[in-house]
Simulated assay, not measured.
Amino acid sequence: MPTANAALVDRENLRAGIDAALARHVAALRGTALAISPDASPLADAVERMLAGGKRLRAAFCYWSWRAHGGVPGDDREVAVLRAGAALELFQAAALFHDDVMDDSSTRRGLPTAHRVFADEHVAAGRRGGSRRFGDGVAILLGDLALIASDEEMSRALAGLPEPVARGARSVYELMRTEVTIGQYLDLVAQTMPWDDPAEDERRAREVVRTKAARYSVEHPIVLGAALAGADEDALAGCRAVGLPLGEAFQLRDDLLGVLGDPSTTGKPTGDDLREGKRTVLVARALARATETGDTDAVATLTGRVGDADLDADGVAELTALLVRTGAVAEVEELIEELREQAFAQIEAQGWPEPARSALVALARAAVDRTA
């Protein structure tokens, strides 16, 4: 999130409240781990590292949506909203632990991923067995611990609320968790499919974007905040109309940054998505344009090199240049702008009061116009 908009997370006790809740979970996990065995203490350290680097974007969308639907800072329900925001951050940590294993990512936010850290420690300690298997196993368990903590924090958030409000918020949270898991599966499936239909590749890519990222990153947090304020179904529908296009634009920006971003800013090596064979809208558009123009060399390069785990810097540069040359980068930028305009038009249609409206507009801009 750009620095100018980071203040949105600092206002009205938001960041302090979220960070305090997360710190309580880390402290509780560390105490439990140490009580079981000193050998378990690295688990708490790893969870703490993952939680330390987040932008708190999802928690901010939740909080300011709550404010937009009548929430008052300092009242009894604010604690519940902050805890719900912490639950979202813990869920994101769980998803990232698992996602990094499935993608075999080497870095996260500029630091080695958890499975790589534990694999390296396995080697350094001269332990028996396969170091990679050990690292992957630990990271999966870390994701499970963060998921357990997320559910605990959401349960505490909803405990003191009126039953209809708690039930509505819980349904949003449960749907989000299920959708992300299914979206992750669809992402894995997409990477196994043959390169024989660019239109179908884009359909699958958009499906993954919406299910795995857009709803979980933006739509569900906005809807959750409104639900915690007791908003009616019409208001929740308005939140969805804002959140889905904005969330899709958010993820499409992420896809562009994965190829064109500065590693010192994104915290990930350039070209990781290309090495992992991510079936993004960007790659699908490039393949479609190369096919339409009869550029068989470009088609062969895209289908043969996207997904090559051994792709070196020159190979990444070649593919990146091809994505630009086919017009795919420009087309995805245009799609982001279309989705952005759709989301902002929907924000205006909701008639949200100040200061929540301005805060949500600024958050929306930060989500789309980012460099990391």
Results as ranks from 00 to 15, higher is better:
279 R>S: 01
282 L>S: 02
266 T>W: 02
253 R>W: 00
278 K>F: 02
267 G>A: 04
296 T>E: 15
253 R>T: 04
254 D>I: 10
300 A>G: 12
274 L>V: 05
258 G>T: 05
296 T>F: 12
258 G>M: 00
297 D>E: 14
297 D>F: 11
295 D>A: 13
262 D>M: 12
260 L>P: 02
296 T>S: 15
266 T>C: 12
262 D>P: 09
264 S>L: 14
282 L>H: 00
286 A>I: 07
300 A>V: 06
286 A>S: 00
273 D>M: 10
266 T>Y: 01
292 E>Y: 09
286 A>L: 05
269 P>Q: 13
279 R>D: 04
271 G>R: 00
269 P>F: 11
278 K>G: 03
259 V>F: 09
260 L>N: 10
284 A>E: 07
254 D>N: 11
282 L>E: 00
300 A>P: 10
275 R>W: 01
264 S>N: 14
261 G>Q: 13
283 V>S: 09
269 P>Y: 09
264 S>H: 14
268 K>P: 00
285 R>H: 05
266 T>L: 07
276 E>N: 11
300 A>E: 13
276 E>R: 08
287 L>E: 07
290 A>S: 12
298 A>I: 04
277 G>F: 02
298 A>V: 07
260 L>E: 15
300 A>K: 05
268 K>S: 03
272 D>P: 11
258 G>Y: 00
281 V>A: 04
260 L>C: 14
297 D>Q: 15
290 A>R: 05
271 G>I: 01
262 D>L: 15
263 P>E: 13
301 T>P: 02
255 D>H: 03
259 V>R: 03
272 D>C: 11
277 G>C: 06
298 A>N: 03
261 G>N: 12
288 A>C: 05
271 G>W: 02
262 D>H: 06
300 A>C: 01
297 D>H: 13
300 A>T: 14
297 D>R: 15
268 K>N: 03
257 L>V: 08
270 T>I: 13
276 E>S: 06
300 A>F: 06
259 V>L: 06
301 T>W: 08
293 T>N: 14
301 T>M: 13
257 L>Q: 02
274 L>S: 06
274 L>N: 00
262 D>V: 07
292 E>G: 08
295 D>H: 10
254 D>G: 05
286 A>T: 10
262 D>W: 09
285 R>D: 12
293 T>S: 15
253 R>V: 01
289 R>L: 15
295 D>Y: 03
282 L>K: 00
265 T>F: 11
298 A>S: 14
263 P>N: 11
276 E>P: 09
259 V>Q: 03
